[in-house]
């Protein structure tokens, strides 16, 4: 991706490609949910934000996609600032094409009134400039990419299983062709056998267009298999960050160690067994 001169940062320094988050902050009353979080995500890279409930991981990504307004800090994608409210339709759409999101609960994240193909067609109408025939072809292509067929295309969400719905949600995000895909506990609500299918699908998608992944998860075992980098959050602050293998195998911070020691797995019997 080439960067034109006008897309340089206001400071005038060289543009850092990818997603750069600096000093992100959010308060609710006297509770600081996100307290100076900084990180960056290179194009095509995969970062996992991990932590327990209330650590601020979901609030952080909600600020990235514009569902919450930050109280401080900046969010830039390829140097373009997206911390302030978008001005006008063009900027709103441009931002949507930068970051898309897949939500946790596939039972609540699809419009109950809209069929699968209708849902994808709507996104394409907004973003692609394709005609009806072109959109139809693209919808079929997207569905094929996430492993769904014609039967699912005409179905309403209530006619689909949890795994199928999550595939639709992924296709819906991909329809925009975003640079970064935020996955907010996107496999947490699924059965293990289905979860592995979705993880495999996400792996396959990532190999092709070089899309950046931002995983929000509480599951460190999942992190091992999907992330290049890990960021550990506690009480809204970053306690540790680094390459996934390094953080999982040689954690530096006591809290990271505690998290890792708490992951149940065979061969680590707990007291009483």
């Amino acid at each position: 991706m080439t960067v034109s001169a006008k897309e340089r940062t206001a400071v005038g320094g060289p543009v850092v490609p990818g997603l750069v988050v600096e000093g992100l902050r959010k308060r609710y009353g006297d509770h600081t949910a996100v307290d100076g979080v900084s990180f960056s995500l290179a194009p095509g890279a995969s970062l996992a934000i991990v932590g327990e409930s209330g650590c601020g991981k979901t609030t952080t990504v909600r600020m990235l996609v514009g569902l919450e307004r930050p109280d401080g800090g900046t969010v830039r994608l390829d140097g373009r600032d997206r911390s302030a409210l978008p001005r006008g339709r063009a900027e709103r759409l441009a931002r949507a094409r930068e970051i898309q999101m897949v939500f946790q609960d596939p039972y609540l994240s699809l419009d109950p009134r809209v069929t699968v193909s209708g849902c994808l067609d709507g996104v394409l109408r907004l973003h692609s400039g394709l005609g009806p025939a072109g959109r139809r072809a693209r919808v079929a292509e997207l569905l094929d990419q996430v492993g769904l067929g014609a039967r699912e295309a005409s179905a309403l969400p209530r006619g689909l299983s949890g795994g199928q719905r999550q595939r639709v949600a992924i296709a819906r995000a991909l329809a925009v062709e975003p640079r970064v895909l935020v996955l907010d506990e996107a496999v947490a609500a699924l059965d293990v056998s289905i979860q592995a299918q979705i993880l495999e699908l996400l792996g396959a998608i990532r190999r092709e267009p070089g899309i950046g992944y931002l995983f929000v998860t509480h599951d460190l075992a999942v992190v091992r298999h999907i992330a290049d980098e890990v960021l550990v959050l506690k009480s809204g602050q970053v306690v540790e960050t680094g390459p996934a293998a390094r953080v999982l195998d040689a954690p530096q911070h006591p809290y990271t160690r505690l998290l890792l020691d708490s992951v149940p797995h065979r061969g680590r019997p707990l007291p009483g067994r």
Binding site: S161, G163, D191, V192, S193, I194, Q195, A196, Q197, L199, E200, G203, D219, L220, A221, V222, R224, H225, A245, L248, D249, L260, V263, H265
Partner: peptide, 24 residues
């Protein structure tokens, strides 16, 4: 065996989770 293979393991060097095709 399928359940074991599709459960992600945190152990270093663990193979990637292998999904069970289809659905219950």
């Amino acid at each position: 065996a399928g359940l074991l293979a599709c459960t992600p393991s945190i152990a270093a060097g663990a193979p990637s989770p292998r999904p069970i095709p289809g659905r219950p």
